[in-house]
Design a protein around this nucleic acid. Sequence first.
DNA 1: CTCGCGATATTCT
DNA 2: GAATATCGCGAGA
Length: 196
Amino acid sequence: MIMRKKISREFYNRPTLTIAKDLLGKYLVRKVGRKELAAKIVETEAYIGPKDKAAHAYGGKVTNRNKVVYLEGGHAYIYLCYGINWMLNLVTKKEGIPECVLIRAVEPLLENYKDPKQHIQLANGPGKLCRWLKLDKTLNEEDLVDSKKFWLEDRGEEIKKSQIVASKRIGIDYAGSWADKPWRFYLKDNLFVSRK
DNA sequence: CTCGCGATATTCT
DNA sequence: GAATATCGCGAGA
């Protein structure tokens, strides 16, 4: 018997760095037609609002793209990067505070698979996990607390503090000293994280 | 194995 | 017009 508890609004109304760490070991559930895809989160990055040069909301600016980040915690912020890859973010904190957590890698839950190597390759990167979960702009601005298509679950997995590794974020060298913040978190020794 | 680069579309200057 | 929170391929070592 697997415990399946949908994550509620309160979860998202806490400090963003805390949420980024707590998300490890939680599950994303995505409903496509009759099928349900589930994947365990193994890697995240925090983006802290107006003061974080690497964040889209740096300086408190609002654009058509990033306005979703200003919504109440629990919404999905999905946008296109490099014209090809969708990125999944979870909005945190109250309305008006533009903070979010980028989901960088997940472990797909599969009943059977032939090649373990392929299994790992399915979702070990922010663009790939969106492809696997069939996430695109139609899911942007989706409220994950209410949604019937896409939400998060706690399946009772406990992650010990010693299993969480903090490191620098990836792909944001343009952000100067902000690029050095240890705001990327992943599960130690997990094969599904995007990079070592 | 590592490295370099092109794809491709949305956004901002 | 330039930049971008990436990916996958192909060349070379």
